[in-house]
Design a protein around this nucleic acid. Structure first.
Lengths: 123, 123
DNA sequence: ATGTGTGCAAACGCTTTGCATCGTT
DNA sequence: AACGATGCAAAGCGTTTGCACACAT
C-alpha cells in the first residue's frame, strides 16, 4: 500500500457516485499527492479493478470510468452529458436462454442508456 | 452507393455471424476492391451504423465489432478467444426499476460473457 | 461548378510500457 | 543487495481527420 495507491483510492472515494475517468482521478489524487504521475494512476486503477477492489466501467466511445462502490449494481449512462447513475442489482432482473450449446455463461455487463433529467429540461 | 460502400457491405455479409473488426472488414473488402483504404472502411462503417444499416458492437478492451444482422438481438462474448455469438431477442428478458426520477430510459446494451465450447475443451 | 466520397498519411484520445530511479524489506 | 512501485516520456492501439484529388450531378 503505497502513498500513490492510497491517493488513488481516496480520490475515488471523494469522487463519490460520479464515476470519474482516470484523468479525473488523476486530478483529484494530485491535490493530495502533487507528485503523482498519470501512468501510476492508470497502473493502480488497473491492478485494483483486476483484484476487485474497485470497478472499471467501460464506456463505448469514451474513456473508462471507475467506481469505488463494488456492490453488485449496474449503470445507466446519459447519452447527452455522459453522466452515469447507479441502479441497484435488486432492481434488475435478466433472464436469458438460447446460450450456445456447451458454453458456460459467466456474467452480464448491462449498460443502459437514458436521457437524464438535466438534459431533458435543458433540451 | 459507391463501390467502396458496396464492398464494405458485401464484406460484412460474407463475414456472416463472425462479427468482424474494422480491420477484418478491410481485409475482406480489399479482396474485391484492392484499392480501398482503411479510412474509407471506417468512414462507411461509421455512417452505416449511425443510419442503422448495420450494427456496431463495442467491446471492452478491444476493437469494435460489426454485424450485418440488424434484427433485435444481443451478443455473448467468449472471454478467452473473443468470439461473439448471437442471442435472439426473444430469448432475453430484462426488467428494470429504480431508474432515476425524471430520466427517460432509452435502451440497453447487454453484453454477456462466456467461456465458449472450444475454449472449454481446450481448457 | 458544386458537391460528396475517396486514398493517403498524419493526428488523435486513451492507455500501456520501457527505463532509470526511488523506497522498502 | 533485491525487489516492487514510481515518474517520465515514448510508444501503442484503434479510430478519426485534413487535404488534395477523383467522380458524379
Amino acid at each position: 500500500m503505497t502513498a500513490q495507491k492510497m491517493a488513488v483510492l481516496r480520490a475515488l472515494q471523494e469522487a463519490g457516485p460520479t464515476h470519474p475517468t482516470a484523468e479525473t482521478v488523476y486530478a483529484l489524487a494530485k491535490r493530495h499527492l502533487p507528485s503523482i504521475a498519470l501512468g501510476t494512476v492508470y497502473r493502480n486503477l488497473s491492478k485494483m479493478s483486476e483484484s476487485g477492489e474497485i470497478v472499471k466501467i467501460p464506456v463505448p466511445d469514451g474513456p473508462d470510468r471507475f467506481d469505488a462502490e463494488i456492490s453488485d449494481h449496474m449503470h445507466i449512462l446519459c447519452v447527452c452529458c455522459g453522466k452515469i447513475y447507479d441502479i441497484d442489482e435488486k432492481n434488475v432482473r435478466v433472464e436469458i436462454s438460447g446460450v450456445p450449446e456447451g458454453a458456460e455463461l459467466l456474467h452480464f455487463d448491462i449498460m443502459a442508456k437514458c436521457k437524464c433529467p438535466d438534459c431533458k429540461s435543458k433540451n
